[in-house]
């Protein structure tokens, strides 16, 4: 299977490239990788990265160098719902460790692990810029803040109830 963006997304790629002066399409790499990750199953396989390289006329290594540098790009498959719990100082002061422990209690996964049904992946991340609303996690596009056990319960319930479609 050779992969390709839909016509719509290709148009979006063109719009992204147009944000930068002519000949600077390498600048589009970060946004296009975001788009690719969203479109091709939540992670960047080598195949996807090579495709993006072709699209932006870059050497594949230029894409690998970038994709491996930034923490938001997943280089391995992840569950349908990625729960990224912030663990840095300010969140820790407000009980982020308890949140990670509670997710383990509920789902049986530790940071870096995915549930066997492929529904949830748990990750710990560093400060997401929501320190005043701690503890918090990122779920897909959104932040869940002022977390409590009840809020985790609700989140898990709503994710589990969702039909099989993209989470964003």
């Amino acid at each position: 299977m050779s992969l390709c963006f839909s016509a719509d997304k290709l148009k979006e790629v063109q719009q992204i490239i147009a944000r930068y002066p002519e000949g600077r399409q390498k600048s589009a790499l970060l946004p296009v990788l975001h788009l690719a990750q969203q479109e091709f199953g939540g992670w960047l396989s080598t195949e996807v990265m090579d495709y993006v390289a072709g699209l932006l006329q870059l050497q594949p290594i230029e894409v690998y160098e970038v994709a491996t540098f930034y923490s938001m790009y997943n280089l391995k498959p992840v569950g349908k719902h990625l729960l990224e719990v912030c663990q840095t100082g300010p969140c820790m002061l407000n009980g982020s460790e308890g949140i990670v422990a509670y997710i383990y209690e509920r789902l049986g996964i530790r940071p870096g692990e995915t549930t066997t049904d492929g529904l949830f992946t748990l990750k710990t991340v560093e400060c997401l810029g929501a320190c005043g609303y701690a503890p918090m996690l990122q779920h897909g596009k959104y932040y869940r803040e002022h977390l409590t056990r009840e809020k985790i319960d609700e989140l898990i319930a709503s994710c589990s109830a969702q039909p099989v479609s993209a989470s964003h």
Binding site: Q59, I61, E62, Y64, T68, F69
Partner: peptide, 10 residues
């Protein structure tokens, strides 16, 4: 001319 090697991760 075709760079195939570089720095990965950080």
């Amino acid at each position: 001319d075709n760079r195939v090697h570089g720095i990965l991760d950080r």
